[in-house]
């Protein structure tokens, strides 16, 4: 069974239909997803700014990490759960949405960036913990993370505007777009 078929099957399940057709539930989930930006991206941005040496300079990096990581993790959990519900409300159109696909790819890049940072530069944090401006590697990870969050937010906002440009139902489309959307 192809993924598209699977998502079409998923769209026919009672839960998906109920969420899709609900008057308030969908909007409530969407509100939770958007406003959790403040907690998830907000605290992640403050951490990135510390890695760039632009805020809380006199607080050791490990302390900033220790204090903010629980909020980043909790925010991420809410984002993933509410995001999965939003996807569940319209699985096939989301799966074929160009902006959604690019957003997921950006999310993978952001996770990869965080993983690489934790397993390289951050392992030797003791050497530069109190530095007002952290070493190059840390600054690069922080800067890259900021850019990726900005791209992720933009792509997320664009998901519902897909119909104006790229839509499998809107032909003709360039071959690359058709390929990327999996039409």
């Amino acid at each position: 069974m192809s993924l598209l078929r699977f998502f079409e099957w998923l769209a026919a399940t009672p839960g998906s239909i109920a969420l899709h057709e609900s008057r308030y539930m969908f909007l409530v989930v969407l509100t939770v997803h958007v406003l959790t930006l403040c907690v998830f991206v907000g605290t992640a941005v403050m951490l990135d700014l510390r890695l760039l040496g632009l805020t809380l300079q006199r607080v050791p990096v490990s302390e900033v990490m220790g204090r903010l990581l629980p909020w980043i993790a909790a925010g991420f959990l809410v984002m993933i759960v509410s995001g999965a519900l939003l996807f569940y409300a319209a699985p096939a159109p989301r799966y074929q949405n160009l902006f959604f696909r690019l957003k997921m790819a950006t999310l993978v890049l952001a996770a990869l960036n965080a993983w690489v940072f934790h397993h390289t530069v951050y392992r030797k944090v003791a050497d530069w913990d109190a530095d007002l401006i952290p070493p190059r590697g840390a600054r690069m990870a922080g800067g890259l993370s900021l850019v990726l969050w900005a791209v992720l937010i933009t792509l997320g906002r664009m998901i519902s505007y897909q119909m104006y440009w790229f839509d499998c139902g809107r032909q003709p489309q360039s071959a690359i777009v058709v390929f990327l959307m999996g039409c």
């Binding site: 403040c38 907000g42 605290t43």
Partner: peptide, 10 residues
Amino acid sequence: LAMIGGAVLV
């Protein structure tokens, strides 16, 4: 929004 959220929370 994210920036304000982070700054206000901290």
